[in-house]
Design a protein around this nucleic acid. Structure first.
Lengths: 190, 190
DNA sequence: TGACAATGTTACCGATCCGTAACATTTATC
DNA sequence: GATAAATGTTACGGATCGGTAACATTGTCA
């Protein structure tokens, strides 16, 4: 389903795992279901990934590298224009946040397994800091007086939109994230 | 621990359940642990509440009635002054959101069991609409031109703060929720 | 074709968890 | 103190889940 059947099982398993983690949560899906969705089986899953936690970690690493590409896209699409990059970030974040098949695994994973001592904790923590640093620099480059507080606002909005979308769906406040975020951006830049 | 040992087991169980649901999530704690924390046992738990889902439902009902009291407090503390009530709402929401022993069970529960067909789904949905309606009216009374969008912003901020606090802790953006929210309020009211 | 690696299949273990049965104990009420 | 209700204790059933063992099958390369 998720991946073409004719690629190595390792990739099929990762794709299926990411899809199912997004849909049901990390603790909400079992390794059997992942293996089956990947048109594979539990044994080959455990031969490639020593444990479910390791599989989660690999999935997050892949999501992180895609997030890097996401960031590079924004810079490439609006070269030298920090303000335009910021607007583009808001627009793309809004797309990701309100789409079922979205790329917010990092946010979700953070909320799901931060309370336990998961091997991916430090990885997520580092990513969180990296993303914040990037966004602060972008806001500063766009002329924000208080870039730190601006990033606080954007962070809360995007995390809230993600949560709200999951629980309230298309009728909730998450669908107005872009509108709200653009307003906040304008407010901070003038 | 949670409640005085000398009150009926039903209350002790509810208190313990709410405490443990907050700390570990609804799916993250078992009925045995709840019964033990209540200085009771699983049998009396199941004699008072037919199932774990029913217990969850009762806990949410109790949290909802406390939320009503929270709302009444705000109105009583700032009689007739919608603007002051709004500031008070922001301040108190900030307290709730960034405290370990907080009253955001409704938000958390919504995020945790909205993806399944839980008996409390409709209850939470109705509460969500009620709280939104109240907040919209308050924003309108305070003079907001676009009260709906203002409530969208506040909703995303408070849900984001709740999520961020759980995953990022005291060092995260959630600790600046009040600052951000006050700024948004000012921005919408002028 | 032969040999070896990768993958698939089945079955199982141990732990956890929701829920119940049967029986013992305490508490309250008359 | 007797009676009945509420509560506590132990054990168990059924289901799910992470993880492993043993063996069969397929694919690859010489």
């Amino acid at each position: 389903m998720t991946a073409a059947v004719r690629c190595p099982p390792r990739e099929r398993i990762i794709d299926a795992a990411r899809d199912l983690f997004r849909k049901h949560g990390i603790k909400g899906i079992g390794v059997d279901a992942i293996a089956e969705a990947a048109s594979s089986n539990k044994m080959t899953l455990y031969r490639h990934f020593g444990s479910k936690d390791d599989l989660v970690f690999v999935c997050l690493q892949q999501a992180a590298s895609e997030a890097d590409a996401f960031w590079e896209d924004i810079k490439a699409a609006n070269p030298g224009d920090a303000r335009a990059q910021l607007s583009d970030w808001v627009r793309r974040a809004g797309e990701f946040v309100t789409v079922e098949h979205c790329n917010c695994e990092l946010l979700d994973a953070a909320a799901q397994l931060m309370e336990s001592d998961h091997p991916a904790r430090q990885f997520i923590e580092d990513l969180r800091n990296l993303y914040r640093k990037r966004l602060v620099e972008l806001c500063r480059a766009a002329g924000a007086a208080d870039a730190e507080l601006m990033v606080d606002a954007l962070t809360l909005l995007v995390e809230g939109a993600r949560t709200n979308w999951r629980s309230a769906g298309p009728g909730g406040a998450a669908t107005r994230f872009v509108k709200v975020a653009e307003m906040i951006v304008d407010d901070f830049l003038e």
